[in-house]
Computed example of a mutant assay.
Amino acid sequence: MTRRHAAPMPDSIRKFMGNVAAHPARSVVCPWCRAGVQQPCVIPSSGKTGRIHQQRMDAWAQLTACCTTCQVTPGVPCHLDGRVLKDGAVHAARHAEAEVTAA
């Protein structure tokens, strides 16, 4: 059996490639577990890495997309009847818009 080795990649290119499989929500700090930018979310009680927390997904969507439900611009929290959604939540339409923007 022959071993295949990946071609070496210069650091100048590697920093632009990043982790291709990483979700774009990793571009913000997780408000739940405080995982840093490009760091995986962790389960606070055990310290193990897990899936991206919903709060991080919401923060990313709020930062990057307009909400078509409540008509707010990026960076402005979603609202319902004039009240900001609880715990920084965003409308599902804003998540969909953020996914389109990221693609």
Rank of each mutant, 00 (worst) to 15 (best):
V90M: 04
V20A: 05
R14I: 15
C70A: 03
T69G: 03
G88D: 01
A7P: 03
V90A: 04
V28P: 03
S46C: 07
M9H: 08
R4S: 04
Q38D: 15
L80W: 08
G82S: 02
A98E: 04
I52E: 02
E97D: 12
W32Y: 13
H53V: 01
M9T: 15
T64H: 13
M1P: 10
A35M: 08
R56V: 15
P77L: 03
T69L: 10
D58S: 13
R14C: 13
R94D: 00
I52H: 05
D81Q: 05
A21C: 09
A96G: 04
G50F: 06
C67R: 00
R94T: 01
W32D: 10
A25I: 13
A89L: 06
I52G: 01
R4T: 07
E99P: 03
G88Q: 00
V100I: 12
T101M: 14
A93H: 02
P77R: 01
P8V: 04
V72C: 08
V90C: 08
P31M: 03
V42D: 02
M57D: 10
T73P: 10
V20W: 06
H79T: 08
T49E: 00
A103K: 01
G88K: 03
P8S: 13
M17C: 15
V72F: 12
G36C: 05
P74H: 07
P40D: 08
R26M: 15
G47E: 11
T68Y: 01
R26A: 13
G82F: 08
A102R: 00
C67V: 02
V28D: 01
C33E: 05
P77N: 02
H53R: 02
R83Q: 01
P24F: 05
G82V: 05
G88F: 02
A22C: 06
G82L: 09
A102L: 11
L85I: 02
A6D: 12
